[in-house]
Simulated scan of single mutants.
Amino acid sequence: MSWSFFIDESGQDRRASPYEVLAAIGVEDRRIWPLIRQLSDAQAHFFGMRLFEAYGREAKAQKLLNAKTFRLAGQMPSFDHAERTRLANEALMDGAHPTTERLTALGQAKIAYCRFALKLARRQKAQVFATIVPRTAPRPDDFNALRKDYAYLFERIFYFLNGLEEEPMGYLVFDEIDRSACHILLGQVSNYFVRTANGRTRARLIIPEPFFVHSDLTTLVQLADIMAYVISWGVRLRSMNEPARAELSLIADDVLALRFARRLAGGEWQSGFKIINDLRPAGGARN
């Protein structure tokens, strides 16, 4: 048995997003293909087609769950499923001729699909991990070392794997950005797992060499993108003081239901989410 952890990010441009989030969804190997098939069927169910067919690229959470989606979805009463799917499909297929009904149905379908996708992930016993960094958090001067948000994400994943009876191996699957950036990140990850004490410990259960995939073609990286976006804009834990978008509250609850959490024998909790208020190394600590 092994687990794959599909990783994506939200708010890395540090512009409008209140938090910079690195999120991972972990899925056991035997559950990956069933979940992918179910998500593909769900897109056909809600939109009458695959979203990649509609957009020709990854359907980013910023397009699916932005404020405009909720505004359009709420401008008319809810459609029944068959009518909503028909109108949403027409909106996607014939974008040059929008109507109020089509735009409303498409907004409602986007929200319904995202909530259903998260429920499918929960049924397949997926686990969610995330590091959360305020937009104003201080940044390190050394851009060659692996950032603390990545290191803490790997730490949370290691805690999860280490607590499973079989101690399965974990594979890291990143969204491929440009090739040079992938090479830089690959080197940073490799150095972390090989040259730091914490990294060497965690390499016992996490394969030190990550995979890079095109998110346009990888359904579960797209799901990680949705989770990262919702955490940035909708999830609020203690000490997260930026205002949340109220319309995301139900979807935020869906994401929190997937968060890894475990109570240890001593009573303390292990959590899949970590808030990092300062990305600079502290006192030379190697995390």
Score class of each variant (00 low, 15 high):
Leu223Ala: 10
Asp13Thr: 07
Arg71Asn: 09
Ile132Thr: 06
Glu20Val: 13
Leu72Ile: 11
Pro34Val: 06
Met227Val: 14
His81Thr: 14
Ala126Thr: 12
Ala88Lys: 02
Thr104Asp: 06
Asp254Lys: 05
Val213Met: 11
Gly74Met: 12
Leu22Phe: 03
Val128Phe: 03
Leu250Gln: 10
Glu242Asp: 10
Ser78Ala: 15
Ala126Val: 12
Arg245Lys: 09
Arg238Lys: 11
Pro208Thr: 11
Tyr192Val: 05
Asp278Ile: 05
Phe143Thr: 13
Trp233Gln: 07
Lys119Gln: 14
Leu237Met: 12
Asp8Leu: 00
Pro243Asn: 07
Gly11Tyr: 01
Phe260Cys: 04
Asp254Arg: 09
Glu9Gly: 04
Gly163Lys: 05
Asp80Cys: 13
Ala197Gly: 11
Arg31Gln: 09
Phe211Leu: 13
Ala73Val: 13
Ser180Asp: 13
Asp29Lys: 08
Tyr113Glu: 04
Gln62Ala: 15
Ala67Leu: 15
Thr131Met: 05
Phe154Val: 12
Arg280Gln: 08
Met169Asp: 09
Tyr55His: 07
Val221Arg: 01
Ala96Arg: 14
Gly284Cys: 00
Leu258Asp: 07
Tyr113Pro: 01
Gly170Met: 11
Leu186His: 11
Leu205Phe: 09
Val189Arg: 01
Leu164Phe: 10
Glu247Thr: 05
Leu22Gln: 01
Pro134Thr: 07
Cys114Ala: 13
Trp3Met: 03
Leu164Ser: 06
Trp233Glu: 08
Arg202Ser: 05
Ala73Asn: 10
Arg200Pro: 10
Tyr150Gln: 05
Tyr171Cys: 04
Phe154Thr: 10
Lys274Leu: 04
Leu256Tyr: 03
Arg179Glu: 04
Leu223Glu: 06
Pro208Met: 11
Arg156Phe: 08
Ile276Met: 00
